[in-house]
Design a protein around this nucleic acid. Sequence first.
DNA 1: TATGAATGAGGATTCATTCAT
DNA 2: AATGAATGAATCCTCATTCAT
Lengths: 196, 196, 196, 196
Amino acid sequence: MPKLGMQDVRRRQLIDATFATVQRHGLADTTMQRVAREAGLSAGIIHHYFADKNALLAATMRALLAELRGDVVDRLAVAATPEARVRAVVAACFAPAQFRPALVAAWLAFWAQSPHSPELARLRRLYDRRTRSNLVAPLAALLPRPDAEAAATTLAAMIDGFWLRAGATEDGLDRADALAHVEVYLDLVLAAGAGR
Amino acid sequence: MPKLGMQDVRRRQLIDATFATVQRHGLADTTMQRVAREAGLSAGIIHHYFADKNALLAATMRALLAELRGDVVDRLAVAATPEARVRAVVAACFAPAQFRPALVAAWLAFWAQSPHSPELARLRRLYDRRTRSNLVAPLAALLPRPDAEAAATTLAAMIDGFWLRAGATEDGLDRADALAHVEVYLDLVLAAGAGR
Amino acid sequence: MPKLGMQDVRRRQLIDATFATVQRHGLADTTMQRVAREAGLSAGIIHHYFADKNALLAATMRALLAELRGDVVDRLAVAATPEARVRAVVAACFAPAQFRPALVAAWLAFWAQSPHSPELARLRRLYDRRTRSNLVAPLAALLPRPDAEAAATTLAAMIDGFWLRAGATEDGLDRADALAHVEVYLDLVLAAGAGR
Amino acid sequence: MPKLGMQDVRRRQLIDATFATVQRHGLADTTMQRVAREAGLSAGIIHHYFADKNALLAATMRALLAELRGDVVDRLAVAATPEARVRAVVAACFAPAQFRPALVAAWLAFWAQSPHSPELARLRRLYDRRTRSNLVAPLAALLPRPDAEAAATTLAAMIDGFWLRAGATEDGLDRADALAHVEVYLDLVLAAGAGR
DNA sequence: TATGAATGAGGATTCATTCAT
DNA sequence: AATGAATGAATCCTCATTCAT
């Protein structure tokens, strides 16, 4: 394990502070000053570690993406069958660590900003591609390719839709409920596929 | 006497300009100056018609909501059976007038901002409640109440999820494809319900 | 008695509204908009009756001055002796109609602005001159001219000083108390003069 | 490390600039821009040192108050008898450093604004209380308590009254004359008290 | 006479960024 | 590496004034 340099420590610290600030105040009210205060550092120092505000935001988005990816990879590692793999991907998206209103709100803020930031747009496409391939690959072992692709698309939309709703904090929607709804759909699809 | 009826004309004009600016520049970069320029008016006049920026943004969101609602209502008016009513609601959400990347991007921007604006949060809850009841009501005539509610929740999430994806402009996702995916799910659900 | 034209009615109405606004919000927050609303008129109309804001403010100050002057003149008209005349002038300054916190606060606002407005400065000088001559004239019949002038100067300062204090509304200083203090001084001065 | 101790230097510099601007342009026309220019700094930096405009104005008023207080304290320190102490307080108010038209005009501007600013109102009450107790304390050693209080009230009003007049710059009223008038009153009061 | 729409300048304040230390 | 001072542009908003109706 490589020792983390001061560089990495500070960068991580600032990314965490950015995430905290975005979820607390929203992207529009995330200022360098606020991020610095949240990190317990001075305003000027951020520019030693990130070229500018956009770079900081992109790095933060990237970190969120990496965490989700880590969660997915961990769960896929212990999934033996295709069906288990599909369910692992879905479960990761609704894991307590991911499906938190605060995190989802931050996520949503980046999503909304992505049409106006090339780097965020790139990250968004990356997420879309990954989620899709994570779903298509195991589904293709269970369903005909066209059906697998359609199911993956629909599943991905459902997951995003439930996330979107989770972002509105006072919403009563429960994590377990959301997951249950997705799994009901999954059962339906797999049953339909198996019945052919 | 000054020109009469300017009130409504200007308000509409400014709302349109706000919508155009939000979709073009994003909510974060939507300034009063830009909106004014888009509307071909001076910056100061906006405050003649709207108390402040928040009021203008809320009015714009409200207008988008009203348009979607109008579309839904129109389609419901000519839907004879419960099933036709469910499909009408879904179809309205994917109608060309609604399912445009630009509109969806604006929608998403407001969604992302809603946790930080009481008025936008209120509008968001209103949308959620309406969409849900529009779906539950006809579904309850086709399925047992708990199944109807579950299906409505899932449908709403799917619709939102496909919208979310439509917001990323360069995304290849086609309107017709999205609608088709939702209808496949609907077929599945209704078939399962009918089979009981 | 000449019939008042619409001109005069409106001017008076606007002056009253200005006075009300100044005492309620302070001179700095007295806007044409607010004055118009207070008068129940539209913002634009003020400029038909007053050249600009300064003219309106000056006219308002002039009206306050005229009211005080009227009060003084009325009281002087029924004062038979020189001493009665001095006391009449003092009494007018502390009459309930004049010595009101609200009125005094407005007065003070104009005073503070007078170094920066030629017209207000002119009115202020006019007030000073009048007050002084109103006091010196009767005092000169009771005291040697130099003593009369000194007493007038001191009296005028005392009056202004008590006014200044009355402007701070929560101050416990009573109108009757203030008047009593001035009269004690007057007694002292006249007694000293008589004792010569 | 940035330059240290800038905090105090800049704050003082900005307070001085505010004072200069208020006396030159009046409180109503004292803008942050003007203050900054007067201080030779950019407009933005003021908010590094003062929360907002009100804070800057209050700090300036506080500084004026502190200077007067310093003057009074210095003179009281070398006043041996009660009478000397009364005369010291009066003399401080008419010292060349205090009784300047420019300073008095600024003072007056703050006074006029005080009904509309809690912080300024607080400072004004502080000044009133201090002046009064500075006068009552020594007078109580020379006169019966009720007379001492009455004399203090009258003296304070006279002082304020002369100040008010000094604020009108072109006024011919001389500093020495004003002081002389107050002292004549003081002589009168003390003589009356001694004669009992 | 009267309205209120409209402007344009200017208000306080915020902010990303730079820089001397 | 780190600070916080400093800038200048940009933000929202207000306001006196003008003008078509």
